[in-house]
């Protein structure tokens, strides 16, 4: 295998928040009955974080579990570990109606960092991004301008955001424009 290449090769820009595409991150879609013990064990076993409740996202470094829908999780882990993790999870769920798929390369991952990070996203997504409404531990799947995206917080002033790989440049351009100096709103 060649070294995996992320969609934008780590493109970054500085505005009133810093926007940076992240290197490849392992992501696995797990669909199944989220109440099932086997599903819970398969997910937490490879991710090493607590199982998330509705619209929760637990992230520690590159590892994490995100609640995507009532029957879907996103499992995050280092990119290189994905093939083994997929095999482990598939094996663990062999008796269970479920779907495990590597989606690492289907996505682009961005970090938006800084005190203005909330405002950057609030320009693009129809979501209440006030600290009272959105905080670390939550995930929101929504619309970023014209494309689907999901984001969560990796710290008090840090968001991680995923979109489809093909629109990585579009999303980077959106975030760059929204974070451009002079665009501070001063709302949050």
């Amino acid at each position: 295998m060649s070294e995996p290449v992320s969609a934008l090769d780590g493109a970054a820009c500085e505005g009133f928040a810093r926007v940076a595409e992240q290197g490849p991150r392992g992501m696995i879609t797990l669909r199944g009955d989220l109440a099932s013990v086997a599903v819970k064990n398969a997910a937490t076993g490879v991710a090493g974080v607590d199982f998330p409740g509705q619209r929760e996202c637990h992230v520690v470094g590159e590892r994490g579990l995100a609640w995507m829908s009532p029957d879907e999780l996103m499992v995050m882990l280092p990119h290189a570990e994905v093939p083994a993790a997929v095999a482990t999870m598939t094996g663990a769920l062999s008796g269970e109606h479920s779907l495990v798929a590597d989606v690492s390369d289907a996505r682009a991952l961005f970090r938006i960092e800084g005190p203005g990070a909330r405002e950057v996203l609030a320009k693009l997504a129809p979501v209440d991004l006030s600290p009272a409404a959105f905080a670390p531990g939550m995930i929101r799947r929504t619309r970023l301008a014209q494309v689907p995206a999901a984001f969560w917080m990796a710290g008090a002033e840090t968001f991680e955001l995923v979109c489809f790989r093909s629109v990585a440049q579009y999303v980077f351009d959106l975030l760059k424009g929204a974070a451009a100096p002079g665009g501070e709103v001063g709302y949050f």
Binding site: A145, Q146, L174
Partner: peptide
Amino acid sequence: GEARGDTFQPLRR
């Protein structure tokens, strides 16, 4: 808003 120039609409690559 942002929907102009390069970001007028998503361009998939």
